[in-house]
């Protein structure tokens, strides 16, 4: 009965482990090399004036003031639009919606939407917001477009998080006389907060890094002023970086590298905060 195997399971296990470690290291190594390269190129450009200078024809006078301001306003408006709609849709679909064929169709389509190339959203936004709604190439157009882009991610992750809450907790709440909304508000949402937060992190990171759809809906490459309202024109950090990399002068390449460092820091800080919050929350509920 004892079948001879080339590898016994123990060795198989080790081989797989080594293989997995290799794959992980390869990914990490590439990332580290890129980060080091960018840092070496850009770090000397990072100082106060870089943050607080308007863009300019001269590389070493050029800064990311407008791009940062544009990015932050864009992000705030995007999240203001996408979070309530996305989270509530996710809750609705999971907790209230009937589980029939139509619901499954919607579910599949939302998952598909999360995978649609972002430039498609740009084209949709161009027609829908910029032209039809007449919002022009304003921050609002950009934010609406990004909101459409990240909403599927928020909906799907909210749904998953809410689904992961065991029914026994819902029963316990109902058994105590809680209404459906009380149950969702006091039991389901707190218990799924970590998962929902993860979705928000992912979608925010995505919104920060998006360039293609913003170019399509008309974010400008050169904006010598700070946006004052949602109808103003704007630029965003990735677009500024994109613009700089296409310049021939060496100085702008340094600027681009510095811009990338800032963008990365932004993402790291954001993700870091969210992960910190999530861990704190996990600790609270798991004793």
């Amino acid at each position: 009965m004892n079948k001879k195997r080339f590898f016994n399971p123990d060795i198989q296990d080790k081989v797989f482990k080594v293989f997995a470690i290799c794959c992980t290291s390869l990914g990490l190594l590439t990332l580290v090399v890129l980060l080091i390269d960018i840092t070496i190129k850009g770090i000397r450009r990072i100082n106060w004036s870089f943050f607080f200078s308007l863009p300019s024809r001269h590389a070493d006078e050029s800064g990311i003031y407008t791009a940062l301001a544009g990015m932050v306003s864009l992000l705030v408006i995007t999240l203001l639009i996408a979070l309530p709609i996305g989270i509530l849709s996710g809750i609705y679909l999971q907790e209230y919606g009937k589980k029939n064929r139509f619901a499954r169709l919607i579910e599949i389509n939302i998952s598909n939407l999360a995978g649609v190339p972002s430039v498609i959203y740009g084209i949709l936004g161009l027609q829908l917001f910029v032209r039809t709604a007449g919002l022009g190439n304003s921050i609002l157009s950009g934010a609406l477009t990004l909101a459409l882009l990240i909403m599927p991610i928020i909906i799907v992750s909210t749904r998953e998080a809410v689904k992961a809450v065991p029914d026994s907790l819902r029963e316990a709440a109902f058994g105590l006389g809680a209404t459906k909304w009380q149950t969702i508000q006091r039991v389901v949402l707190p218990a799924s907060f970590g998962g929902i937060l993860t979705g928000i992190i992912l979608s925010t990171s995505r919104a920060i890094g998006e360039t293609a759809p913003l170019i399509v809906v008309g974010a400008l490459a050169y904006v010598p002023f700070i946006p004052e309202g949602p109808m103003d024109q704007y630029t965003s950090l990735p677009i500024q970086v994109f613009n700089w990399t296409s310049r021939p002068q060496q100085g702008f390449v340094v600027n681009a590298a510095a811009g990338i460092i800032v963008l990365l820091l932004f993402t790291f800080i954001l993700n870091g905060t969210a992960i910190y919050l999530r861990n704190k929350w996990y600790k609270k509920i798991a004793a």
């Binding site: 065991p166 026994s168 029963e171 058994g175 809680a178 209404t179 009380q182 006091r186 509920i285």
Partner: peptide, 28 residues
Amino acid sequence: RKKVGMVFQKPNPFPKSIFENVAFGLRI
């Protein structure tokens, strides 16, 4: 349902503090 308490087969406390678990029904 508030007049009829129910205890289930598997203990199902909320992921909250001991106090908040017992206070839940009063709070709602």
